[in-house]
Amino acid sequence: MAEKHPARRAITILCAEDDAGDRMLMRDAMEESQLGDRLVFVEDGEELMAYLRRQGQWADATLSPRPGLILLDLNMPRKDGLEALSEIKQDERLRLIPVVVLTTSSAEADILSSYGIGANSYIIKPWTFDDLVGVMRDVGRYWSSTVALPAVDRA
C-alpha cells in the first residue's frame, strides 16, 4: 500500500451499491489493489445523501468523513444514482466531490445523462474480477493522487 506509493494519501471512497455481491467483490478488489483506501458502503441514493449531509446514523462526523471519491451505481432502490448525482452536483458543499459512475448499464442514454448531470467519470462494471481490481486501483489512484483537486473545507 503506502510503501508502493509514498506520495499518496489514503482517502475515503464512498460507494453507493445496492447489490451485496458487488459490495463483496469491490471490497475484495480494493483489498487486492492494495491502495489502502477506506471503502464505505451505502446501499441506495437516500443513504448516500444522508451520509453526505450527516443525517441519522451518519451524524457523527468522525464516522462519516467527507469522501475523496464517490463510486455510484445507477440502478438503486428508493433514490437511484442519477437522482443522487443530480442532488450532489446542485449542492454547493458537495459538488466538488468527484463522482465516478460504476454501473452495469452500457446504455447511451445513461452515459449521456450521467455526464450531463456532472459525473466525473462513467465506468461500466468490468466482466472479470481482475478487471475490477484494475478499475478500483486506477480510479482510486487517479482521484487521490493523479489529479489536483481544490482544497475544500473538510469539516
Binding site: D19, G21, D22, L25, D28, N75, T104, S105, S106, A107, K125, W127, T128, F129, D130, L132
Partner: peptide, 18 residues
C-alpha cells in the same frame, strides 16, 4: 435484458474468477 440479464451473468463470471 441487456442490462438486467447481464448483471447476474457478470456475477457468475466474477465470482467464478474468485
Amino acid at each position: 435484458a441487456s442490462h438486467d440479464l447481464q448483471e447476474p451473468l457478470r456475477k457468475i463470471q466474477t465470482f467464478g474468477d474468485r
